[in-house]
């Protein structure tokens, strides 16, 4: 069995090796696939804070992914059309700067997570799943009917947004941006889980009533986790929109929320590298099996069934020999 520390080191290195190999072999599409896996991993790293450490099964995390995407889409849309963005009496200019877009995506997603979390966390179990799903559907149908920004057709952004000192249209450079952001999010996740906050959140997942008797407010702990989680997933949404140079209501869809959960389950719930392993496997299966059959989701279902029935620690759990769903 392999120690989890080795996995934590080896997985990012392996993810980095794929596009570097593709660069040498002149396969830009493989770099794009690795970038897609990196961004999905980032979204799932965000969800894993709520789901893995906090035990919050959110079926509405696509809300934050979509908000991040639309933050990018709207700002870039106004920048490319040279039209001001008017919110009530305030007028803003659009922007094509990635750091500014990321900041807006993080703030908007965090605020939405605060609002949704404050309401949803009053419930638990199946009711929490349903209420987060309901929020997801609300945002989805709002985006469909938001004709100013493309409605059902979505928004196309013609040129990828810029990052100082880089040409983000070069696939390997955009991958580098996404990879660094993913590494920072993983470092934040690792620090969080070892901090008193992370330990208390973990404890609140295990014995919610007992943490109250030691002076911890489980509602506040979970809300903070939900906000951090939503902000990271929102950042991933902005990057995903930049990867595709396209934003559509499907970023808000419940299927996407489900996919984020699926790739965490495949990788390992609560494991630091679970979302990364899950996202890489998901994208690889999507690419290879998708090339063989239109019904590749059936085979993904088989993989998921196998993991849920025989390897509840996901792939990382299998490799480390720790079968439990959590670390």
């Amino acid at each position: 069995m392999i120690g989890e520390r080795w996995i934590n080191l080896a997985v990012p290195l392996a993810l980095l090796a794929v596009p570097l190999y593709a660069l040498m072999a002149d396969e830009p599409f493989t770099i794009t696939l690795a970038t897609r896996a990196t961004i999905l991993a980032l979204a799932a790293v965000g969800l894993n804070i709520a789901l893995g450490i906090g035990g919050l099964v959110s079926l509405g995390h696509a809300v934050f992914f979509g908000l991040g995407g639309y933050a990018m889409g709207i700002l870039a849309f106004h920048a490319q059309n040279y039209s001001p963005l008017e919110i009530g009496p305030l007028t803003f200019a659009g922007t094509k700067s990635m750091p500014v877009i990321w900041l807006v995506a993080v703030i908007v997603s965090a605020m939405a997570a605060l609002l949704i979390g404050a309401l949803s966390l009053r419930t638990s179990g199946v009711y929490f799943i349903m209420i987060t799903l309901a929020f997801g559907q609300m945002f989805y149908y709002f985006a469909i009917s938001w004709s100013a920004y493309g409605g059902e057709d979505g928004l196309s952004i013609y040129v990828r947004n810029g990052f100082p000192g880089l040409n983000t249209l070069v696939p390997i450079q955009f991958f580098a941006v996404c990879f660094v952001v993913l590494c920072l999010a993983l470092a934040l996740n690792a620090m969080l889980r070892a901090s008193p906050f992370g330990l208390a959140l973990n404890a609140a997942r295990q014995v919610p009533q007992r943490v109250e008797t030691v002076g911890l407010n489980p509602m506040r702990l979970k809300l903070m986790a939900f906000v951090i989680s939503g902000a990271i997933t929102g950042l991933a949404g902005a990057l995903f929109a930049d990867l595709n140079r396209f934003v559509s209501p499907s970023m808000f869809s419940w299927q996407l929320s489900g996919e984020l959960i699926i790739l965490i389950v495949i990788g390992g719930v609560g494991r630091l590298m679970g979302p990364v392993v899950g996202a890489c496997l998901f994208v690889a299966l999507e690419h290879w099996l998708g090339g063989l059959t239109d019904f590749w989701h059936v085979w993904l279902g088989v993989v998921l069934l196998g993991i849920v029935l025989f390897a509840r620690g996901g792939v990382v759990g299998l490799l480390t020999g720790k079968a439990g769903p959590h670390v």
Binding site: P196, L199, A200, N202, A203, Q206, V207, R210, V211, T213, V214, G215, L216, G324, H326, V327
Partner: peptide, 25 residues
């Protein structure tokens, strides 16, 4: 008010050190 409950109910997935640090004031 510090309670040591009947049946212990430690945080099973955390280490001893983490159990103690999680509640530290």
């Amino acid at each position: 008010v510090g309670l040591v409950p009947e049946g212990r109910r430690c945080f099973r997935d955390l280490t001893v050190r983490e159990n103690l640090l999680a509640t530290a004031r």
